[in-house]
């Protein structure tokens, strides 16, 4: 698991748990928020990701509660999970910088307008 790049939903779940322990539905909501409403996790997909992340030792169960007679299990990031998320974020940042820097080199007529935050060094005003 450590060698393969994380897929976006798994990355977003780890990102969400970096903010603190979350239960299943809390994760669905938080991922929606973090991804700017671009990623909505369905239940089956969410638990496939949680199961994989648990097997990889990146997350663990924090606690369990019964709310309105329904089970709520909270998950938290492990140290390995935090390291993995940091490495993944760094890798994505590197790739994004490479992409924006190449885009800057395109001829002006085909170059897209880059938002100020995406401009590479010199354009970060």
């Amino acid at each position: 698991m450590a060698d393969k790049a994380l897929q976006e939903p798994a990355f977003l779940v780890l990102t969400s748990l970096a903010g603190g322990p979350q239960h299943g539905y809390g994760l669905v909501e938080d991922v929606l928020r973090v991804s700017d409403r671009q990623v909505r996790l369905h239940t089956g997909t969410l638990y496939a990701i949680l199961d994989r992340l648990r097997e990889g030792g990146l997350i663990e169960v924090d606690r369990e509660e019964i709310v309105e007679s329904r089970l709520r299990r909270y998950y938290r990031l492990t140290n390995a999970g935090a390291e993995r998320l940091a490495a993944e974020a760094e890798r994505m940042q590197r790739n994004a910088s490479a992409a924006t820097s190449r885009l800057q080199q395109l001829p002006p007529r085909v170059r897209p307008d880059l938002r100020p935050g995406l401009r590479p060094e010199g354009g970060m005003a």
Binding site: G24, Y25, V28, H42, T43, G44, L46, Y47, L50, D51, R70, L71, R72, R73
Partner: peptide, 24 residues
């Protein structure tokens, strides 16, 4: 995971729904 998944699916469905969301 069954009970936990059921809780998430029910919470995502909201009240007054009789049929599961097709995507879900």
């Amino acid at each position: 995971y069954g009970e936990e998944m059921l809780a998430v699916a029910m919470a995502a469905a909201g009240p007054d729904r009789r049929w599961p969301d097709p995507g879900e």
